[in-house]
Simulated scan of single mutants.
Amino acid sequence: MSIRHGLLALLEHGPRYGSQLRTEFESRTGATWPLNVGQVYTTLSRLERDGMVAPDGEDDAGHALYAITEEGRDELKSWYEAPVDRTSPARDELAIKLAMAVGAPGVDIRAVIQSQRHHTVKAMQDYTRLKAQALTAAPANRDEVAWLLVLEQLIFQAEAEARWLDHCESRLARLAETATATPAPSPTRATRRKLPR
């Protein structure tokens, strides 16, 4: 998640101070990815160092304001125009857990899958309920529409995870049917696969 670009996007609407940026970021994303105010100020310091924001005086309460610079606007424009890079996917704890559980002594991988499926379906139901509430309120402003988009992404992600868990269970069932008494050979350098770049 790019906190850096999120803060630049908020600053494009005018000068803001750190805790104001934190509140607006969380409002726009429905607090799905909470920020701590120290993280906001650290990011602002780096943005200032990189010439993307500049101090812009203080508000009436004495809060130090920051404003986006032209260099910051250029960076933000580039971020909006560039696709999110998927060639180096982030580590996914669930994928790692299942990969390690396959063949691990004393681990019932089907139970691991069932437990995760239960959790994933519950999360999907919770997100769907939140979406229904958001739609009932008829999103009228930018933050409400942004929150709705985040919720829908979470729903689609949970649906995909549930389908993937079904796939994992099917694959393991087929593997159990065809398993022989001889252990499978370890993958050699030639048989390992890398994601396409």
Rank of each mutant, 00 (worst) to 15 (best):
M1A: 04
S2V: 12
L8E: 09
A9L: 05
L10F: 13
E12K: 11
G14Q: 06
G14C: 10
S19A: 02
Q20R: 14
L21G: 08
R22P: 04
R22D: 03
S27L: 14
T29F: 04
T29P: 01
T29W: 02
A31L: 04
A31E: 04
L35P: 09
N36W: 15
N36D: 15
V37N: 05
V37H: 02
G38A: 12
V40C: 06
V40P: 13
T42W: 07
S45N: 09
R46S: 11
L47G: 05
E48G: 12
R49A: 15
G51R: 04
M52A: 14
V53N: 13
P55K: 02
D56A: 14
D56L: 11
D56I: 08
E58G: 06
D59A: 12
D59Q: 04
D59Y: 12
G62T: 05
G62A: 04
Y66Q: 06
I68D: 08
T69C: 08
E71S: 15
E71W: 15
D74L: 10
E75D: 12
K77H: 03
Y80Q: 10
A82M: 05
A82W: 06
V84Y: 08
D85P: 07
R86Q: 15
R86C: 12
R86P: 10
P89E: 03
A90M: 03
A90I: 02
R91P: 11
R91Y: 14
D92T: 02
D92V: 04
I96C: 07
K97T: 08
K97P: 01
A99H: 10
M100P: 02
M100E: 15
M100A: 10
A101P: 06
A104G: 07
G106A: 13
V107L: 05
R110W: 05
R110L: 03
A111F: 11
I113T: 07
S115Q: 15
S115I: 08
R117A: 12
H118A: 14
H118E: 14
H119F: 15
T120L: 07
T120R: 10
K122C: 15
M124F: 06
Q125H: 12
L130Y: 02
K131M: 09
A132V: 03
A132M: 04
L135G: 01
A137W: 02
A138H: 10
P139V: 05
P139T: 03
A140N: 03
N141Q: 15
R142M: 09
V145R: 15
A146I: 06
L151E: 01
L154Y: 01
L154K: 02
I155G: 00
F156M: 00
F156G: 00
Q157Y: 00
A158R: 00
A158L: 02
A158K: 00
E159Y: 01
A160C: 01
E161F: 00
A162K: 00
W164K: 01
W164H: 02
D166A: 00
D166V: 01
H167I: 01
E169R: 00
R171H: 05
L172Y: 01
R174Q: 07
R174N: 06
T180Q: 09
T180S: 10
T182M: 13
T182Y: 08
P185A: 10
S186L: 13
S186R: 08
P187L: 11
A190W: 13
R192V: 15
R193H: 05
K194L: 13
L195W: 03
P196W: 01
R197N: 13
R197K: 13
R197P: 03
